[in-house]
């Protein structure tokens, strides 16, 4: 009977939350369409693979130039390396190629990862046909930047996770904040509803909505924007769902330390944005050692890793379950902290 009463109370809470969602169409739209809009914009800005790099060939014998397939790039011929360097500095040139013992060596300006990959792809095609080996790594020197910077496909999974995390955090935090500021939390606490039932009710109510949200956003990114997808779509959903749980429970937790909506928004630069920096959007190897450990404390780090394993590397469950467990672990910790915080309001 005790369990029956529990499920009934939690069910009532879940139904109420879903009803509120139904009424608040604007918030519902924000949760689904804002990530879609931002991802689409990012796709439009970064997803263009058709960029033609401008490439200089330095001191190439005429017959070699003849034999190469130079389509897909704007080619300039240089007599001396110094001249090519000059144009590289002024960014009139993306890269130049020299020959050392008949081995092509490319020097890249390097500050834009999109251009880098375009140059390297072009090198593969142009010089692969010369040697007949397509897989051979071209020797490359970067003036700025580094080779690991890649484009939409590579940071897509991170951004997918980030936007789901961001919006679930914000909406759940504000919802719970409102519950406190308009006094309904107090009313809940003066009802037989237990503190942990409140938290669980929120997790289930928002969880149900999040399944819908994560499915739509993931499907849009993968099937409409054509984000790279080597693995199983189901795993993507599983990862985003676990990530949303941690966002949800963290949002509720931090809402206890905000007095109004604006203060909730103030958590974004402190809690949300830093996660983006440490989640693998930027190469973690290049982050100073004394701060790189921060990434391991953030849910997004594990979600991004798992999403990349599935979406880019095509791995299966055995390569994501540890990250999933860690994400659930985060949620459990946040749930426990939430219950402790609610004890401030009522000791029993």
């Amino acid at each position: 009977m005790c369990l029956g009463a529990f499920t009934m109370r939690v069910k009532a809470l879940v139904i109420r939350i879903l009803r509120q969602f139904k009424r608040d169409k604007r918030t519902m739209a924000l949760l689904i369409f804002a990530p879609i809009l931002v991802l689409s914009l990012l796709y439009l800005v970064f997803g263009d693979d058709d960029y033609s790099p401008s490439i200089g060939l330095v001191d190439f014998p005429e017959e070699v130039v003849e034999s190469l397939d130079l389509s897909g790039a704007v080619i300039t011929i240089y007599e001396e390396e110094a001249a090519a360097f000059g144009d590289l500095d002024t960014q009139d040139l993306d890269a130049f190629v020299t020959l050392d013992d008949n081995q092509p060596h490319v020097t890249l300006e390097g500050s834009d990862p999109l251009i880098n990959s375009a140059v390297l792809n072009w090198m593969q095609e142009a010089f692969g046909s010369l040697t007949g080996e397509t897989e051979r790594q071209v020797e490359a020197t970067f003036v700025h930047g580094h080779e690991d910077m890649r484009h939409f496909d590579y940071f897509g999974p991170v951004l997918l996770g980030f936007f789901i995390f961001f919006f679930v955090f914000l909406i759940s935090g504000v919802s719970f904040l409102r519950e406190r500021t308009r006094g309904t939390l107090e009313r809940l606490l003066s009802s037989p509803l237990r503190k942990w039932e409140i938290v669980i009710g929120y997790v289930i109510g928002f969880g149900l909505f999040t399944i819908l949200q994560a499915s739509i956003i993931s499907a849009y990114s993968i099937f409409v924007l054509g984000m790279m997808m080597e693995g199983n779509f189901f795993y993507v959903l599983l990862i985003t769902l676990c990530l949303s749980f941690s966002a949800l429970t963290l949002g509720i937790l931090l809402s206890s330390f905000a007095h109004n909506e604006l203060q909730m928004i103030q958590f974004i630069p402190i809690v949300i944005v830093p996660q983006l920096f440490f989640s693998g959007l930027f190469n973690l190897d290049t982050i100073s050692d004394w701060v790189s450990w921060i990434g391991r404390l953030t849910p997004l780090y594990y979600a991004a890793d798992a999403l990349r394993n599935v979406m880019v590397r095509g791995f299966g469950f055995e390569h994501v379950y540890i990250q999933l467990l860690i994400l659930l672990g985060f949620s459990v910790v946040f749930v426990v902290l939430n219950i402790i915080v609610l004890r401030q309001h009522r000791k029993v």
Binding site: Q20, D24, E186
Partner: peptide, 13 residues
């Protein structure tokens, strides 16, 4: 039964 100073209602419902 407790009624606080704030109305404590879900106004969207």
């Amino acid at each position: 039964g407790y009624m606080a100073q704030s109305d404590a209602l879900y106004t969207e419902l």
